[in-house]
Design a protein around this nucleic acid. Structure first.
Length: 469
RNA sequence: CGGGAAGUAGCGCAGCUUGGUUAGCGCGCAGCGUUCGGGACGCUGAGGCCGCGGGUUCGAAUCCCGCCUUCCCGACCA
């Protein structure tokens, strides 16, 4: 039973358990080549599931999908001063095309506010054209100095929403609507990851925005991960790109805009929030495979009974899959499904079948339950929903236990070693934020005292501070 | 750009200090057999510009010089 070595491609202080989760997943047990062959498509399958669900929610807000160019002329970016300043260090710039040096370099989009505004300025003429609600699914490139597997990759996939509104109130309301109706609901209900909603400080705000809202989650090691953002852009881009509309009184007015996005970073967040020493734990609502029916050995008709059971589950609308690869050892197959985090495994073998039962195994808890084969189909929907709840409950409990209220920068720094600290913003201030920054701690978001999203002019704010990825 | 480490089989590594048979080990891979209720075992086998270039030497993975690359820490991550 010699286990293969678990390789650790990350730094020593990178959370050990995450190394193991990712390394086991990436390397499976036969080296990175075949391991990657297994995990890459699987991680992508998870992303596709996220994408499908999010796309439905986004369209429900009246937003349409479109697609815009990958290459953006450098001059577009320089039109908005803060925007270009924020993104310059991480741009991939194309200087040659068709064998010739380009007159003007183009950048590979790090985000698409500028190129989309160049279209918006042509499309939008009248207040009757507003609001204009557009989303695109795309890849973007940010040349970060230190990429992190799944969390901060040079190229990543995301959705970026871009909207134009007649008024500031309209734009602000839409920013918050996306945050609440799309992002929070998706992360909590589907990913089973509890998130804090709040506003970013000036220092952490998106380059070019007037206000940034964020969803912040706590990972298994107590560090924070920004899972998604929704920005009020004000009129910054519409002024830079002359995106004007004629209002009902016949006046030319700049539109008010928003942008918002979530990315494949959520795959990393999922791993780090729910993963354990045995691999991923994928919540049933997300899982591409919710239930796997494993044929232990194809004797006494176990194979046929397993296939029949699987078909029965599929007919019930459960995403079930059969594993009858009996030429591969049972232990190997069990571990494979465990690594992938499949929520429920059903082991069908001759020994149990002799007594008319199968074994139902929960990935979240590891619990194994013998169940009469005739009862499996009726009990499974309940098991799946219970597994979903358990993951959310566990993550919420951890977050709440590791969040404490403090009143000094010193205490905040100390608390951030293991979790989140809440400190009055009036106590901390930008000067305190700088001091925290020196300790590797950042203000993740500003909230109202009761933890809700603060209004635009609200003053009695609390800063949630933590170490972050 | 500063500080540190490493380049040897698909992957992870040993060998180098003290130069000397045919460069090893684990995993993975291929074949055969025995296994199979939690990462099976045995036997056989395939697979190497030892990062690149130069030097010292009868002889270099090993010693010397130069170069290249990668990784880690910091700066970056709206």
């Amino acid at each position: 039973m010699a286990k293969p070595p678990i390789l650790t491609p990350q730094a020593d202080d990178f959370p050990r358990w995450y190394q193991d989760v990712v390394a086991k997943a990436e390397l499976a047990d036969n080296g990175p080549v075949r391991g990657t062959m297994v995990i890459r498509p699987y991680a992508y399958a998870l992303w596709e599931r996220m994408q499908a669900d999010l796309d439905r929610r986004i369209k429900a807000t009246g937003t349409q999908n479109a697609y815009f160019p990958l290459f953006i002329p450098m001059s577009f970016l320089t039109k908005e001063a803060e925007h270009v300043e924020g993104f310059s260090p991480e741009l991939a710039v194309v200087t040659h095309g068709g064998g010739k040096e380009l007159e003007e370099p183009v950048v590979v989009r790090p985000t698409s506010e500028t190129v989309i505004n160049s279209y918006f300025s042509k499309w939008i003429q009248s207040y009757r054209d507003l609001p204009l609600l557009i989303n695109q699914w795309a890849n973007v490139v940010r040349w970060e100095m230190r990429p992190r597997l799944f969390l901060r990759t040079t190229e990543f996939l995301w959705q970026e929403g871009h909207t134009a509104h007649a008024t500031e109130e309209d734009a602000r309301a839409f920013t918050i609507r996306i945050l609440n109706e799309v992002y929070e609901r998706f992360m909590v209900d589907i990913l089973a990851i509890p998130v804090l909603l709040g506003r970013k400080t000036n220092r952490e705000r998106f380059a070019g925005a007037t206000n940034t809202y964020t969803c912040e989650a706590m990972m298994g090691d107590g560090k924070a991960l920004q899972m998604g953002t929704s920005h009020e852009l004000g009129q910054n881009f519409s002024k830079a790109f002359d995106t004007l509309y004629l209002d009902s009184s016949g006046e030319q007015v700049h539109v008010w805009q928003t942008s918002w996005g979530v990315s494949t970073r959520m795959v990393g967040g999922l791993i780090m929030c729910h993963g354990d020493d045995n691999g991923l734990r994928v919540p049933p609502a997300l899982a591409a495979v919710q239930v796997v029916v494993i044929v232990v050995r194809d004797e006494e008709g176990a194979g046929d009974k397993a296939r029949a059971l699987c078909a029965e589950l599929v007919a019930l609308g459960i995403r079930a899959e059969i594993d009858d690869r009996v030429e591969t050892s049972f232990g190997r197959r069990s571990v494979d499904w465990e690594l992938k985090g499949v929520p429920i495994r059903i082991e069908v073998g001759p020994r149990d079948l002799a007594n008319g039962i199968v074994t139902v195994v929960r990935r979240d808890s590891g619990d194994k339950t013998p169940v009469a084969i005739a009862d499996v189909a009726t009990m499974l929907p309940g098991e799946l929903s219970s597994a979903q709840d358990a993951l959310l409950t566990e993550a919420t409990k951890r977050r709440d236990e590791r969040t404490i209220d403090v009143t000094t920068v010193e205490d905040a720094t100390e608390a951030a070693k293991v979790g989140f600290a809440r400190i009055p913003w009036s106590t901390l201030g930008e000067e305190g934020e700088t001091r925290l920054g020196g300790q590797g701690v950042s203000v993740r978001c500003l909230q109202s005292a009761d933890g809700s999203l603060p209004g635009p002019s609200e003053t009695d704010l609390v800063a949630v501070v933590a170490r972050a990825y």
